[in-house]
């Protein structure tokens, strides 16, 4: 896995480089926009971490030129500015994700993993959560390789929860997800599916927490 880091701050660039190298990525690092543009034009990478505020050529321009050349390499933008316009502009220009400085290292690593995986599989992959694996395309879930007996709607709920593992998923988001199967899914129905899922998953240490007034959360592996 080759990753290019484009960051002009030497301390941050060094930190990122070392962190990703520890995770077994092959990392190149450049410190200005002009150099980044040159390197990206001549070599291929699996991921680019691109700072927006760069000397010589700013990140937006580097990104625009990259996409104009037809490259589909995933790009994670980094910026010190958190204005919505910058974010929208970056995503419009073809960035795949966005992270505001300063960030938590695990957060960056998680995003990098997700982007690399997406780049490889084109978006559809198996979701894993501890011993639990969900084959999104095949629509079946396994626990330590053993198939779990889940209905289509229960799978739908589990998929959304696993995609946003560790984060809150609202009942209406779940309802939206199930809309394809059911004409109308009420909040009560969602509660029923979650209840059934819990019964099947709790014995194996996967817990779905109810967050008052907000929805559900699939607890992180470390917590569960």
């Amino acid at each position: 896995m080759r990753v290019l880091i484009v960051e002009d701050d030497p301390v941050l660039a060094d930190g990122l480089t070392r962190s990703l190298r520890q995770a077994d990525y092959a990392v190149d690092c450049v410190h200005d926009g002009g150099e980044a543009d040159h390197v990206l034009a001549t070599q291929s990478y699996d991921l680019v971490i691109l700072d927006l505020g760069l000397p010589k050529l700013d990140g937006f321009e580097v990104l625009r030129r990259l996409r104009r050349r037809g490259s589909k390499v995933p790009v994670l933008m980094l910026t010190a500015r958190d204005s919505l316009q910058d974010r929208v502009r970056g995503l419009d220009l073809g960035a795949d994700d966005y992270l505001a400085k300063p960030f938590d290292l695990p957060e960056l690593e998680a995003r990098v993993r997700a982007l690399v995986r997406r780049g490889q599989s084109g978006g559809s992959a198996a979701l894993t959560h501890g011993a639990l694996t969900l084959d999104v395309a095949g629509r079946r879930a396994t626990l330590n390789g053993d198939p779990l007996d889940l209905s289509a709607r229960e799978l739908g709920v589990l998929e959304v929860l696993m995609m946003r593992s560790g984060r809150v998923v609202g009942k209406e988001q779940l309802a939206e997800q199930l809309y394809g199967w059911d004409e109308e899914v009420g909040a009560n129905a969602i509660e029923v599916y979650v209840h059934r899922l819990r019964r099947k998953l709790e014995p194996v240490g996967v817990s779905i927490r109810t967050i008052r007034g907000l929805g559900y959360l699939l607890e992180k592996e470390s917590n569960g």
Binding site: D9, D14, L78, L105
Partner: peptide, 12 residues
Amino acid sequence: TPMAGIKTQTEL
């Protein structure tokens, strides 16, 4: 940006 650098290095 410098704070991001310090934080990354510290966590590392």
